[in-house]
């Protein structure tokens, strides 16, 4: 099953972008430590966030889906526009990349899939309860792992993997609940 930018737009429609700004309006290359006036405060740049989340998505998404890079990039663009949330994502990705570099000699995006999986589990994101203000494990679960799972499974395409065309959080109308399995 191929994910598309349109699927990402559907996920964003459900979960919301920053104010009225849609994913198309996001200018890649902004934010994080690469911004001209940004202090070096551990915030990941747009590209670092994108590369890390695409790499993690390749681990946490089922093998049946493809088109992950375009989907994640489009979804992220909208989510990073939400100021507080975007900052949380950047901070957490910055921490995760730092740990990856310490333990595996490179940022998440440069690790092979087995090491990415191992890193997430060593961080504790598999057993942690998500918490935007919690420990590193809890924040990785919230801003990275669950951010990606939410994007997928609150979208109609992700819902189809489970047998629900209109998953909770998606405004998919009032027809599907009346119908049997397609």
């Amino acid at each position: 099953m191929e994910l598309t930018r349109r699927d990402a737009a559907a996920a964003l429609a459900a979960l919301g972008a920053g104010g009225a700004v849609g994913y198309a309006a996001h200018e890649w290359g902004s934010g994080g430590d690469d911004s001209p006036d940004a202090p070096d405060d551990g915030l990941a740049t747009d590209e670092e966030v994108r590369d890390a989340l695409v790499a993690v998505a390749e681990v946490v998404y089922p093998s049946a889906v493809s088109g992950i890079a375009a989907f994640v990039e489009s979804f992220l663009a909208g989510r990073l526009e939400r100021e507080d949330h975007g900052r949380g994502v950047r901070e957490t990705v910055g921490e995760l990349d730092e740990l990856a570099s310490e333990w595996y000699d490179g940022p998440v995006a440069e690790l092979d899939p087995e090491d990415r999986d191992r890193l997430l589990r060593e961080v504790g994101a598999d057993v942690a309860d998500e918490n935007p203000e919690g420990t590193t494990a809890e924040r990785v679960r919230y801003y990275v792992v669950n951010e990606l799972l939410l994007a997928l499974y609150a979208s109609p395409r992700g819902g189809e993997l489970v047998g629900i065309e209109n998953p909770q959080g998606h405004p998919g109308g009032t027809d599907t609940y009346q119908r049997g399995t397609p």
Binding site: P62, D126, L150
Partner: peptide
Amino acid sequence: PSPVELALTGDDWGDALLERLNAEYG
């Protein structure tokens, strides 16, 4: 369970998570 909410809990991801969602939802 709602599959979305189910997906955000548990210590699995990838194919194992999808397998659990399909087992528990529907």
